[in-house]
Amino acid sequence: MSRIVVQEDRCKGCLLCTTVCPVNIIVQSDRFNVSGYKVAEVPESDAEKCTGCASCALICPDVAIKVYRTPKTKGGK
């Protein structure tokens, strides 16, 4: 499984990441960060779908997204 971590205090809510996600799982949350921006998130229910492609991180102007990938292991799920 792969996942992204949005560093919420850096996100400016521009939503560019939402336009490039191939599985369309990034959305604007209801949370405001300290700067008053509504940050992007992957809802818990969609977390499994992340492919770890890093497109969102590539287009993020604020280097606010970290991407983790787990290599498939033998006998893995």
Binding site: K12, C14, A57, L58, P61, D62, R69, T70
Partner: peptide, 23 residues
């Protein structure tokens, strides 16, 4: 086994920029 495959480059200072959203 999880690997961090995308992160801030080392040389970029860890701080918020003054740029507008989407710049």
């Amino acid at each position: 086994n999880e690997k961090l495959v995308f992160d801030k480059p080392e040389i970029i200072i860890d701080r918020a920029t003054h740029y507008c959203p989407g710049c």
